[in-house]
Simulated scan of single mutants.
Amino acid sequence: MSTTLPPPGPGHAPWTTDPYANALRNGRGPLFLRRPDGWLLPLDVERWCADADAADLSALHRCEGPVIDIGCGPGRLVAALTARGHRALGIDVSDAAVDHTQRLGGSALRRSVFDPLPAEGRWGTALLIDGNIGIGGDPGALLRRVAVLLAPSGLLVAEATPQDVDERVQVRLDDGRGAAASAPHFRWARVGAAALLRYARSCDWQPVDEWEADGRPFLALRHARTLRSPNLAARRPRDLSPWCDAPASHHR
């Protein structure tokens, strides 16, 4: 599948910059999130660009129905799901990420999770893996948005930060070589399992499973109430529109 979309707007520029695109194209870092105080969070580009590992598979084995991978990156999870017979779609604001996912044989669109998306209210599972609970710097807002995307009784599988943290920060992408010193800052969040559970419960999500694999903590959650209209809730997964028929958008 090939989809041509206009460039992302200024608010989503950080993930379209050269350091991120180059890291994905090369399959390796270094790549970091840098706070204004100089603190660095290494990003595991090599793992993202490899095949799905045992920890990833522990999450994918729990997926139900059609799956949307939010912030899919280079697409290893979408490819693994597709190979296992799931209908899966990745969304990401990076051209490099979408291109990489499609080269692996997966379906992907350049979109923001906060944009209109295909099949809203009908996804069986949503994934927030590899720190993507941090998208937008507001876990509560992200969890409320995901609730709208899922079908009634749909499943959210989210990965938490291994440390017991709950922070919202301004960061920028940094390649460790000084080339990204002028990269724009953007909002990000880091939440451990306890904090993620607090945010989830405050947004009417209920935990149904919690586990750790290779030092990575995961939670599976279901929303406690239906946010979709009855006509959408009644549709079956086979009624999902083709990804490429969705309207184009330029945000993440």
Rank of each mutant, 00 (worst) to 15 (best):
P152T: 06
N132T: 12
D175C: 13
D99P: 01
G154H: 12
G140H: 07
I135W: 00
L155I: 08
G137F: 11
L155G: 02
T82Q: 10
P116Q: 05
P184L: 12
A88H: 03
L155W: 10
D130W: 08
G90I: 14
L150V: 02
V113E: 00
G124N: 10
D138G: 06
G140K: 00
A183C: 08
G140C: 11
V146E: 04
L128S: 07
S107V: 13
S182I: 03
L150F: 14
D138A: 14
L128K: 05
R168T: 14
I133G: 00
A158Y: 03
A183M: 03
A79G: 02
Q163R: 10
L81Y: 09
D164P: 08
T82E: 12
D115N: 09
N132Q: 11
A83D: 14
L127K: 02
I129L: 15
A181N: 03
E159M: 11
A160Q: 06
R87E: 12
G121V: 08
G137V: 10
A126W: 06
L104I: 07
V98R: 09
I91E: 04
L109E: 12
A181Y: 03
L104W: 15
V146Y: 01
S153R: 15
R87A: 14
A158W: 00
A126V: 05
I133D: 01
A141N: 09
A160S: 15
G131T: 07
D175S: 06
D99M: 04
